[in-house]
């Protein structure tokens, strides 16, 4: 469990990623929970840097795909090419054959390409010309999207959003952090290039396996179910959390507890991960949306309504 401390020490205490501790923790939690993360933020808030830095420290293969409307599914999963020398078809693997795939601006890709990617996320395998290939563990997609851009984008449908374990909303740093970043801009860029793995891949797989065995008391399970059910009853919500979203909360809560160095989950873990695990699965009623109600506010409201386990 020391790897997360090392990551924090290098990236947070080393001031490589300024004011991004929560985002780093959440990405690692998603990785431990064998899930994928959707990072939402305006351009230039270090989404790519964060993903790249974490993958480098974890000794994992990292690929980045810039999603565009003309990108084809085969550009991601791969395709067969005819080798004239051997007279045979040879597989050219796409960027999805990696450990961490950064799908930059996922909402710019066509729905067909998005679907191909999301299918791989769900099944952890791809099928090319009828042949199925298992993706190497750990496999994680970090997709980014810009919430402001409205033209030339294909917003992800709710069913596909549901595939992401968490939605990590990242924003601007504080003024102080911004000044510090400006002072050390060249140093930071060089530091990211020089990052060395803090944990071998094999050990990371063991950590993933151990995090799944975190103990969750029945009362905490009951609390998770109550929170998710309450999102369905909220007056501003048209579509609340599904059973899958409850599972997402559970997986993330276990990973969060593990990152905190505990072998058991507590209600605080549920509270910590409820927002990233639920916000992208909640659909609001239009009248409330117009009033400025957001899914984040709904989850906050739900957390103040549902009593924590007692005694």
């Amino acid at each position: 469990m020391s790897f997360i401390k090392d990551i924090r020490r290098i990236l947070v205490d080393g001031r490589i990623l300024i004011e991004k501790e929560w985002e780093i923790n959440m990405i690692v939690a998603c990785l431990l929970a064998r899930g994928h993360a959707l990072i939402e933020g305006v351009p230039g808030v270090a989404k790519t840097y964060t993903a790249k830095s974490v993958s480098k420290l974890l000794d994992l293969d990292f690929r980045r795909v810039q999603m565009t409307p003309d990108l084809l599914p085969s550009d991601i999963v791969g395709f067969y090419v005819f080798d004239q020398r051997t007279g045979e078809f040879r597989l050219r693997r796409g960027p999805i054959f990696t450990n961490i795939l950064l799908a930059d601006e996922i909402n710019r890709a066509s729905p067909r390409t998005q679907s191909a990617l999301l299918e791989a996320m769900q099944e952890r395998q791809v099928t090319i010309e009828g042949q199925t290939f298992r993706l190497e563990e750990p496999f994680m997609v970090l997709a980014t999207q810009n919430p402001i851009e409205m033209e030339g984008v294909f917003p992800l449908p709710e069913a596909q959003l549901d595939r992401f374990l968490a939605k990590i909303v990242t924003g601007y740093v504080s003024h102080r952090g911004f000044v510090e970043m400006l002072k050390r801009v060249y140093e930071i860029e060089a530091s990211i290039e020089e990052l060395k793995p803090v944990i071998p891949r094999s050990e990371l797989l063991e950590e993933i396996s151990r995090s799944a065995s975190v103990r969750v008391d029945d009362s905490v399970l009951d609390y998770i179910a109550s929170v998710v059910e309450e999102t369905r009853r909220h007056p501003a919500v048209r579509l609340g959390g599904s059973p899958r979203s409850g599972i997402a909360v559970l997986k993330l809560a276990k990973a969060w507890a593990y990152l905190d160095g505990r072998s058991y989950a507590i209600p605080d873990d549920v509270k910590a991960v409820a927002k990233p695990a639920l916000v992208h699965r909640i659909i609001l009623k239009p009248e409330y949306e117009l009033q400025g109600v957001t899914p984040e506010r709904v989850v906050e409201d739900v957390l103040t309504r549902v009593p924590v386990p007692k005694p």
Binding site: I266, P267, D268, T304, R305, V306, P307, V308, K310
Partner: peptide, 8 residues
């Protein structure tokens, strides 16, 4: 409060 965890 009922919604506050022990740590809170």
């Amino acid at each position: 409060p009922d919604h506050a965890t022990h740590r809170e």
